[in-house]
Nucleic acid binder design. Structure first.
Length: 807
RNA sequence: GCUGAUGUGGUGGAAUGGUAUACACGUUCGCCUUAAGAGCGAAUGGGCUAAGCCCGUGUGGGUUCGACUCCCACCAUCAGCACCA
């Protein structure tokens, strides 16, 4: 018997599998389908570390398992190769991004193949391939034709380091998500996608998805739907009206002031002369502050009275009008009605500037005193007071009543608002899909005709970002200057490029039909494969890729290109793998562990098994370099068990354990509990380590292990004279008769404490009386039952018998 | 501040109303070996007057014959959002 030496068997099988094409997926088949997808990586120059493989191994185990279960499984991989990270890396290395990208892809693909991720490499796609981004451009033109892409030059988020505009989703705490640089506001010409038109659908359809709740929650919050009412207030001595959005019109009798955001257009018109210089100074200071500075200042309220008053139609009360930077220009109507008794920010503002505070809601505590402390500010529940015809009503009832009243009187208008903003889509960078539009003096903006796609990204020597608000492409006259497709007159090409997210918005569709040059995806194939049944990746894309892709998908659905409303039916989020020191793996910290070094030392099967075993799939876990030895030892024991002499008879104990194992592993894979699946295989091996298995038992054991450890199982399968390949076998059947033990251990409790256990034969398991007598007879239990009368006996068949005695 | 999740040995974790700590790491001892390593076997929550008993799943209370599991309050950690009207 030879030893288990992974390096001698793994490359051998990898070659054979690839040559035989056993992971190739037929386009359409009679079998039921499963589409199991990883979030495809961007080809970073550092390659992948063991953390990336936690997700890839999981999806691979699932894919292999479903193949055993008789499904036609689509499990593809590709490269998200356009965008900032790839371009910045290329600039750093001084090599053209097309060259560095190709090199990085080769490296990462090699890492994946080394671990035998069972992708169908015939379907490999790359977002920077001309034949791929032709269709990305095609979709853009559809968006343009549908009126979902528009040009604007409003101020937008600008990253001074990356020298490009950013979408709202790419800014976190006022910093660029990519490089952490403080974001500035800059006015540049932009292409913007009208994602807000889909806000309602994006929110509604979330319900039907099998996604982790926290990711759904993040999308709900990001979309930020709010139903309320815009209430108009006349400005005293002026024809102007101020419109304030509120979700709490029930408290409107408690309004004592109005606050305008510094950006509000009415300020100039209605500020009284004697206040003008102070107000102007305040606005100047406020608008200069970045979001970060405002956060740094904390919640201390600042502001200026502008000298005018508005009238509350409900009670004729005069409301002084103020300007303050706590009111944001881009939220609601940019103006707020101050109800200091029932809103904590309004309360703080009123206290700061000694404005009056009126109580209009009495909360659960029944406190009716004047509101003088922040803790008294009621928000959630209560009864109306000081509100004329609303008095005595519950606040929810009052809200409906007052809304109707305000609308009837023409003082208010119900509205729904969203936090979601339109998607700033163009980038002033080189390494992206050119936006397929031209600017014609006569015809305006014209889309490039479909038959002229793809619009090729020109090869250039200089691709560094310019920082001027134009992309490097603008500096290439022979590319920019063109003719108008409509009138043949002189025209200029749009020189901005698409953001990183464009290619990943629809890539899952292309895997279905990667080589089609007629259409984006063939309709029949799309119908067969969509939606993605199981999508696996990191949670960092919750309001980026996962939202953008849903948006594009819905547009494609609405124009009849595809047949499903949603792209990703089920989503699982993989937990981070930290370095052994508990920090993020990073080159600069010199704590990165690559799959290459683990494969070299232990083999790919050990790496795969450890990724599965190290802990719950969604948990953040540190890589433990000593622990990995445990799964390596396990594989050695499997090797030994299979290599032992065959048994001729089926031992019941072993057969029972094996049947249970078959069920347990299948169930665990389906709910992503890979760690307990591996643990139960270890238990099985520990059980049979000193006994013998029949050939058939050995084979079934190998199939159960095969999704996790494809190489060792193929090698041992061959040694058992199994037909090539183990990976084309069926998942073993189980027999119900073996799932129940012959004897069961029943716990004996007295007054809730465990006192003994008794062994019960299968045939009397449901006979309470016999079990009860056996339990009473037990010596250990007897000690606690003696001299006491049993008041109550509870028997859970096969599990526990519990006696309650009188004290 | 708000929302969500989590809290179990020295470590990763198992158990979702029924023997808490499966499986693995680590540690200790034994076998084997000239030796080391590997391998094999055993032990491994704490305490005590120790074949037994008591305590023990963040803290305090509750429901139950029985609670890591369900309910209430609090504390801590992580994640997301954050002056959102």
């Amino acid at each position: 018997m030879h030893k288990y030496i992974p390096s001698q068997i793994e490359p051998k099988w990898q070659k054979k599998w690839e040559k035989g094409g056993i992971h190739e997926t037929p386009d359409i088949s009679d079998k039921p389908k499963k589409y199991v997808l990883d979030m495809f990586p961007y080809p970073s120059g550092d390659g992948l570390h063991v953390g990336h493989f936690k997700g890839y191994v999981a999806s691979d185990v699932i894919s292999r398992y479903f193949r055993f279960k008789g499904y036609n499984v689509l499990h593809p991989m590709g490269w998200d190769a356009f965008g900032l990270p790839a371009e910045n890396y290329a600039i750093k290395m001084g090599i053209h991004p097309s060259i560095t990208t190709a090199k990085n892809i080769a490296n990462i693909k090699n890492q994946m193949q080394m671990v035998s991720l069972s992708y169908d490499w015939n379907r490999e796609i790359n977002t920077t391939d001309l034949n791929y981004y032709k269709w990305t451009q095609w979709i853009f033109i559809k968006l343009f034709e549908e009126g979902l892409a528009y040009e604007d030059d409003a101020p937008i988020n600008w990253c001074p380091k990356d020298k490009t505009g950013l979408a709202n989703e790419e800014v976190l705490d006022g910093k660029c998500v990519r490089c952490g640089t403080k974001v500035e506001q800059k006015k540049i010409r932009q292409w913007i996608l009208k994602i807000t038109k889909y806000a309602e659908k994006l929110l509604e359809d979330l319900e039907s998805l099998d996604w982790p709740p926290f990711i759904k929650e993040m999308q709900v919050n990001w979309i930020g739907k709010k139903e309320g009412i815009n209430i108009s207030y006349e400005v005293e001595g002026s024809k102007e009206k101020i419109v304030c959005f509120t979700t709490r019109p029930d408290t409107n009798f408690g309004a004592t002031f109005i606050v305008l955001g510094p950006e509000h257009p009415l300020i100039k018109k209605i500020t009284k002369k004697e206040h003008l210089s102070r107000v102007n100074r305040y606005i100047e200071q406020a608008t200069k502050k970045s979001e970060l500075d405002r956060i740094a200042e904390g919640r201390k309220k600042t502001g200026e009275f502008i000298g005018s008053y508005a009238i509350n139609n409900l009670n004729g009360k005069k409301l002084p009008i103020w300007v303050s930077d706590f009111v944001l220009g881009n939220v609601g109507t940019g103006a707020v009605v101050g109800v200091p008794g029932h809103d904590i920010r309004d309360f703080e503002f009123a206290r700061e500037f000694k404005l009056s505070i009126v109580r209009v809601v009495v909360g659960k505590d029944g406190d009716t005193s004047a509101i003088t402390r922040a803790e008294q500010v009621q928000e959630k529940e209560g009864t109306m007071v000081n509100s004329e015809f609303l008095d005595g009503m519950d606040i929810h009832e009052a809200t409906i009543k007052i809304m109707n009243y305000l609308e009837e009187k023409g003082w208010g208008e119900r509205v729904t608002t969203y936090h979601l903003r339109d998607w700033i889509f163009s980038r002033q960078r080189y390494w992206g899909e050119p936006i397929p539009l031209v600017h014609c003096e006569k015809c305006g903006v014209v889309a490039i005709p479909e038959d002229q796609l793809p619009l090729k990204l020109p090869d250039v020597e200089k691709y560094e970002p310019t920082g001027t608000g134009e992309s490097p492409l603008a500096a290439i006259p022979e590319w920019v200057n063109t003719t108008c497709p409509k009138c043949d007159g002189p025209a200029r090409r749009e020189s901005n490029t698409m953001p990183q997210w464009a290619g990943s918005c629809w890539y899952y569709l292309r895997f279905i039909d990667p080589k089609n040059d007629k259409v984006l995806v063939d309709k029949d194939k799309e119908k067969y494969w969509m939606p993605v049944d199981w999508y696996i990746g990191g949670a960092e894309h919750a309001v980026l890729h996962l939202l953008y892709a849903r948006f594009w998908h819905k547009v494609l659905f609405d124009i009849g290109v595809i047949s499903t409303k949603e792209p990703f039916q089920k989503l699982s989020s993989v937990g981070l793998v930290l370095a052994a020191d508990g920090r993020k793996m990073s080159k600069s910290l010199d704590n990165v562990i690559t799959p290459n070094e683990i494969v070299k030392e232990y083999g790919a099967d050990t790496l795969r098994l450890y990724e599965a075993f190290m802990g719950p799939f969604e948990n953040t876990i540190s890589w433990d370099p000593t622990s990995i030895n445990g799964v390596y030892k396990f594989l050695n024991r499997v090797w030994e068990v299979i290599n032992k002499e065959e048994s001729n008879e089926t031992e019941i104990k072993v057969e029972t354990a094996l049947n249970k194992l078959i069920v347990k592993v299948a169930k665990d894979i389906e709910v992503m509990k890979f760690n307990t699946a591996v643990a139960s295989m270890m238990e099985f091996i520990n059980l049979v380590f000193h006994s013998k298995l029949t050939n058939d038992q050995k084979r079934r054991l190998l199939i159960v292990l095969a999704p996790f450890a494809p190489h060792i199982t193929e090698e041992l399968w061959e040694m058992l004279r199994g037909k090539y390949s183990i990976h084309q076998q069926s998942w073993p059947k189980f027999d119900n008769k073996y799932l129940e033990e012959e004897e069961t251990l029943v716990v004996v409790q007295v007054n809730g404490k465990v006192r003994d256990t008794i062994l019960i034969q299968k045939d009397i398991i449901n006979n309470k009386e016999i079990v009860q007598n056996l339990a009473i007879a037990s010596k250990k239990a007897q000690k606690f039952l003696a001299e006491k009368s049993v008041k109550k006996t509870i028997y859970v068949p096969g599990k526990i018998i519990s006696f309650v005695t009188s004290s």
